[in-house]
Write a protein that binds this DNA or RNA. Structure first.
Lengths: 222, 222, 222, 222
DNA sequence: GATGAATGAGGGTTCATTCAT
DNA sequence: AATGAATGAACCCTCATTCAT
C-alpha cells in the first residue's frame, strides 16, 4: 500500500480507484491466506478475515461472495506454486540439481502454507477438487514429457511405467517436508533427490550424467 | 473409562449393563464414522451422530466428552489401518507380493474412508496430529527394521539412505489410490509395486528374489 | 399453562411432553402475534419473538422454520375470525342484529389485531395471499347462500346482483372500524348496519322484518 | 426544499442547476415508485433505487434524508390519486357515470400500484398514517358535500346517516378491484355502481335522474 | 455536487452442549 | 441411564448511511 503511494508521490495526487480496490482485494486475500493457514479453513470466519485485513465485515462481501470464493481466488492465482518443481536434467549433477529444486520448492510451499489446507478442501468441495486436479494434471503432463525425452535417449529404466514413475516423483516431491517430520526423521533433500533419481535413472546413467553433465549440450525440460 | 474399571471389580454383577453401554458406544462410533466420511467432520453435528445411531442427543455426551473425542476414539482403534501394509520380502516374487498388499491396503482404506478426514484434522488439531504422527512412527520403525534386515543381507541399494527409502515407500503406498486418479491415470498396483521395489532393491536382486523366493527360508517382516 | 397444571394436580406428577411442547408453541404464537401487531411483521425479529415469549432464540426454530411460518400458523388457526360475521336474518330487527354482530366482530378483530397486518403480507407473499383469499371465498359463499335464501323469499332488491351485494356487505363489515376513524368520523355500528341492510333489503322489507321478525319462524343462516 | 427558496432569489442565475437537480430528484422518485411496487417497500434498498435511477448511492441521500422520506414525497405528490373518484351526479344516468368513474379510477390505481404498499406502511409508521388519513379526510369532505347537495334537493334516502353513506361509498370504491378478485368473482363496475347508487338514492330517484338527467341543469360536484 | 467504497449494527439461522424430567 | 427440549453464543450476510475523493 504505502509502496504504491510512495511511488506516486509528487506525480499524481490520487491513486486510481481501480488500483485501490485491487489493493483492498489483495489485503483480504493476504489476510484470508494467513488465517486459513493459522487456523484452518473451517475455523476462519469472514469477519475475522476482514478484521485481520483491517476492513469492515461488509467490505469482505464487496470483494468476495463468500469465504469459499476467496479461497478459490487464492488458488487460481497460485495453484502452480503448490506443484512440484520442474527440474532440468542433464545439467551437471542431477541429484544435486534436484535436491536444490526440492528445497526451494518446499520453501515456497512453507511460505504459502496453503498446501496444508488442500486436503481438507478436496474432501469437502467437489468443485475445488476439480480445480486442483486439473492443475495437477498440467504439472503431471509437463514432468512426464521431460521424462519421455530422457527415455528417448535411453537414459531411464526400461522396465518401469513412465506414468507411474512420474506420479511417484510428484508424490514424493509434494510430501517431502511435512511427511518426513511426521516419521521422526530429518528432511535431507539430497537423500530424497537420490531416491527420486533412482526412480528415473539407473545408477550408471546418473554417474554418466554427473561426470559429463555440462558436456551434454541438450537441456531437457521436465 | 471408569466403566471398564468397574467391570474388573467383583467378577460380573454389572456386565449386562456394561455390555449395553459398550454397545451404545460402538453404535455411536460407527455412526460418527459413517457421517464423518459422508459429510466431513465439521459438517457433521452431534445431534446427527446420535440420531443416526438411534440414541438421543444427550446420550452422545454420556459416552464422549465431545465430537472431537469421538473422532479420537475412532482413530485410536484404527490408526494402524491407515498405515501402509507390512510386506514380507523374500517370499516369492516381491513385486507381486507388494502389489497385492497395496491393493488390499487400499481396499481397507476405502472401506474406512477416514483417511479423507485426516488432513482436515491434522491442520487444526495439534494433539490429533501428534496421535497420528506417533502411529506413523510406529509403522515407519517396523518397515525400516524390515529393510534393514534386507540390507544386512546385501539385498538393497547400498548408496541410498534407508530412512529416506522407508519414508518414500510409505508415502507412495499411502497415496496410491486417490493421487493417481487426480493425475488422470489409472491405478496400476503392479506398476507401483515395481517402482517401490526399485527403491529398495537393485534389479538383479529382484530377479534373484523372484526365482529363489521360496527357497529363501527367512521371512523378513517389514 | 397453570390451567393445565392445576387440572393434573394430585394425579400426574408431570405434564406430558407433547403438552409442554404445545404450550411453548402457543407461547411463541402469542408472542409473535403481539409483536406483529405492535411493530409490524417486517419489524419484528425472530429473536424478539423468542425473547418476548421468554425462551431462547433457538427454541423459536424448534417450533417454526421461520417467521413466515409462525404467521401462517397464526392464520390457519384464526382465519375465520378475520372474516365478517354471519348474521341471521329474520330474527327480530335485522338492523339491530347486524349492528350487534358488527360490533362484536370488530371487538374480536381488535383483540387479535392481526388484520392490520394482512395487507402488508398479501402484497408480498403470494402463498399467503392464496391462503387468505381461500378463506375469504369460504365466507363469501356462506354469506351469499344466506342472501339467496332471502332472495328466494322475495325479500331482497330484485335489480341488484347478489354477488356484488355480498361483496359490498363483506367489504363494509371488514373495514368498519379502522376506516371510519381514518375519515374522521365516529364508528356508529347502527348506522353502518342500516346502510348494509339497505344494500340487501328494500326499506319496506326491513320494516316488515322489524315488526314480525320473531313471528317469522324460519332462521336464515347467512 | 432550500432549492426552491433559492430559486426565488434573484430571478434565475442558478436555474439550470436547479433543473438538473429536480430532474435527478424526479428520477429517484420514479425509480423508488417502480421498485416499491415491484418488490415492496421493505424489500427495496436505497442502493437499488439509486442504481435503477442511474445515479450513485450517495446521490440518493442528497435528495432524500432516507428511504422513508422518498416514500412520503411520493405520496404527498399523489395522494389524491389513491382516493375514490368524485362523480358528478345528475348528469345523465348516474349509474353509468359512476361505473365509468370507478373503472377509470381503478385504472389509475393499477398504473400507480402504490396502494398495495399503503397498508404495509400505515401499520408501521404513525406519521405516514396521519398523512394518509388527512388525505382521506379531504376526499371524504368533498364527497360528503356533494351528497349533501343531493340531500338538500331531497334526492337521497332520508333515513341513512350521510357520513356513513359517504364512508361506505369510499370504501366500496377503494376496494373494488383487488377485493372482488379475492372473492372469486369478476369485477363488474356497473353492478358495483348500481349498489353504490342504491346507498345514496332510492330507486325512484335513480329512475328520475336517468330519464331527466340532462334536463337537470345543475351539476353537483361530489 | 456526485460518486461508490466503506462501515458495522443487526437480522436470520445453526448447533455444541446442558439439564430437567 | 436416557431423553430431547432448551439454550445462547457465534456464524453468515445485508443494507442504511457516511465520507473521502
Amino acid at each position: 500500500m504505502s509502496d504504491r503511494e510512495d511511488q506516486l508521490v509528487g506525480e499524481f495526487p490520487l491513486i486510481p480507484k481501480q488500483e485501490r480496490a485491487q489493493l483492498k482485494r489483495d489485503l483480504l486475500l493476504k489476510s484470508g491466506h494467513e488465517l486459513f493457514i493459522l487456523k484452518g479453513y473451517e475455523h476462519t470466519t469472514a469477519k475475522e478475515i476482514a478484521a485481520h485485513a483491517g476492513v469492515a465485515t461488509g467490505t469482505f462481501y464487496r470483494y468476495f461472495s463468500d469465504k469459499r470464493q476467496l479461497l478459490m481466488s487464492l488458488l487460481e492465482d497460485r495453484i502452480e506454486m503448490f506443484m512440484p518443481p520442474e527440474p532440468k536434467w542433464g545439467v551437471s549433477d542431477p541429484e544435486t540439481t534436484l535436491a536444490g529444486l526440492l528445497e526451494s520448492h518446499d520453501k515456497r510451499l512453507k511460505e504459502m502454507g496453503l498446501q496444508r489446507l488442500l486436503p481438507e478442501l478436496v474432501a469437502k468441495d467437489a468443485e475445488f477438487a476439480q480445480v486442483l486436479a486439473s492443475g495437477k494434471r498440467k504439472i503431471f503432463t509437463r514432468i512426464l514429457s521431460g521424462i519421455k525425452l530422457a527415455n528417448d535417449k535411453g537414459l531411464t529404466w526400461t522396465d518401469l511405467d513412465l506414468n507411474t514413475v512420474t506420479w511417484s516423483l510428484m508424490t514424493l516431491a509434494e510430501h517431502t517436508p511435512e511427511k518426513m517430520k511426521q516419521c521422526g526423521i530429518q528432511t535431507d533433500y539430497h537423500e530424497v533427490a537420490k531416491v527420486i533419481c533412482r526412480l528415473i535413472f539407473p545408477p550408471e546413467v546418473i554417474i554418466k550424467l554427473r561426470t559429463c553433465g555440462t558436456a551434454d549440450e541438450e537441456e531437457n525440460d521436465i
